[in-house]
Amino acid sequence: MQRVNMIMAESPGLITICLLGYLLSAECTVFLDHENANKILNRPKRYNSGKLEEFVQGNLERECMEEKCSFEEAREVFENTERTTEFWKQYVDGDQCESNPCLNGGSCKDDINSYECWCPFGFEGKNCELDVTCNIKNGRCEQFCKNSADNKVVCSCTEGYRLAENQKSCEPAVPFPCGRVSVSQTSKLTRAETVFPDVDYVNSTEAETILDNITQSTQSFNDFTRVVGGEDAKPGQFPWQVVLNGKVDAFCGGSIVNEKWIVTAAHCVETGVKITVVAGEHNIEETEHTEQKRNVIRIIPHHNYNAAINKYNHDIALLELDEPLVLNSYVTPICIADKEYTNIFLKFGSGYVSGWGRVFHKGRSALVLQYLRVPLVDRATCLRSTKFTIYNNMFCAGFHEGGRDSCQGDSGGPHVTEVEGTSFLTGIISWGEECAMKGKYGIYTKVSRYVNWIKEKTKLT
């Protein structure tokens, strides 16, 4: 034993070699072989497995989906700052455009905790909710729209109204504003409101030439003092309507412009014939205590009207009353817009006519005020429907199939267009061939041609 100890002390290297040989010859039971080890760690190889990531292109799944990435790591994937920024906006807080917040056709661009709407022409605001041009839906104005110097929408209202708090709607500024039905039992019968379409306001006024200088022999019209197929109006439903009495009662109609003036057809009036105007009328054979009678003290036909040349060209006249009318729910003026808007309103496509005229061709006159909704007829169809001249200051309205029309005794009465609950004068009943005849239409004086003249002559002093 002493000898062994001496050998170990003198030859430590020998001992180490012996131990190493023993270990190498022993069977290893701690580690699995290569094949079995792979069965336990069965993990798919990654895209760049075996390579240094710093030297390969980034992978979106590896960089940002398996674990949260930084902007720089995302930049490695896209290799483009702009594309990385677009991805980053949604990656950080989701897609803010998912709810489609942009209105009126706006395009949404996502941002971090926010979004941006790219608005089409005519709109602005956070969600493109603000109209900035009158060309689109009248700028959301209830009545009139004008573009300011910086191309912003400025709404306005006709006389007797003021802008509401929203700067879009119009509200009454006087007790009985024009064009409004205020009798409670008839307010439910107000005709369907007309909503502004998209309009090209630059070209809204037709490029028409008034044929002022045409000389033409007097034409022989049949029954051209021209509501057939209409309905009984309720008291106060058309408070701007008046009836004219002269040699015979209810020979023509008219509309209240203001307390002192009536507008009617020029062919209705004769110099030297006494005319009485009755406002607030409903049943011409009954006294309903809503009527107001006034005498006409002055007749002003349009300066281009000449019955000797043509009885229905420039067929418009103004009547001055001896005493002002007292405005109330049964006696209310009709609204008159400017030339541009009167023309736009007419193009809405349908209007209402009213009167006490004959209820059928050569038949009896109506006792109760009649009204009828009539569609506008395109000019080409209008011209083809008659052998008589249709001037540019006239328009056609009615039904091709016949059966409904204005008729004798309705002449001078109103053709009105309702705009968001307020009625505007767009025409004056003038003439036609018979009444409600198939293929024939009622012919009306186009008020847009005469609004400046009306307003100039009827100013209240």
Rank of each mutant, 00 (worst) to 15 (best):
R384I: 07
T417H: 03
V451P: 02
I136A: 14
N393R: 03
E116I: 06
R298C: 03
F71G: 02
Q167C: 07
Q143Y: 03
T389K: 08
Q57V: 01
G58T: 03
L346I: 06
G421W: 03
E285D: 13
L189W: 11
L372S: 15
V248K: 13
Y161K: 00
C268F: 01
L383C: 07
G398L: 04
A173I: 12
N203L: 08
P301M: 11
R364V: 11
P375K: 14
T458K: 02
S365G: 07
T287E: 15
G50H: 07
G280R: 02
Y450S: 02
F78P: 02
I112A: 14
K387S: 08
P301N: 07
N295K: 11
D322E: 12
R75Y: 09
C157K: 00
I336C: 02
D150W: 07
A337L: 01
E129V: 04
N258H: 04
R364T: 14
A37M: 03
V296R: 00
G125A: 03
R294G: 02
N328C: 04
F176P: 00
H314A: 06
F388C: 06
F399P: 15
G246Y: 06
L376K: 05
D111Y: 10
T287Y: 11
N245T: 09
V273H: 15
G357H: 12
C335P: 02
L425P: 00
G50M: 07
C170W: 01
P101D: 04
E10P: 13
G58I: 00
G160Y: 03
P12Y: 14
N328E: 02
E98L: 12
A37P: 05
L19F: 13
D232R: 12
H400M: 11
P12K: 11
L163C: 02
W88I: 04
L163P: 05
C134P: 03
H303R: 08
D93K: 09
G254C: 02
E456I: 08
I256V: 07
S182N: 10
S411C: 06
P239M: 01
S217Q: 12
M8G: 14
K51E: 04
L425C: 00
F345S: 01
G50V: 04
D322R: 04
E10A: 13
I15K: 11
T342P: 01
Y330D: 04
E193N: 11
Q143K: 00
L325M: 04
P120R: 10
L460S: 08
Q96T: 07
R384Q: 15
Y444M: 05
N59C: 04
C18N: 04
I454D: 01
N295H: 12
V227S: 12
Y201N: 12
N213W: 05
I316D: 00
Q2N: 15
I309T: 07
E27P: 03
G442E: 04
P12N: 12
S184E: 14
L383D: 07
I284E: 06
T271I: 11
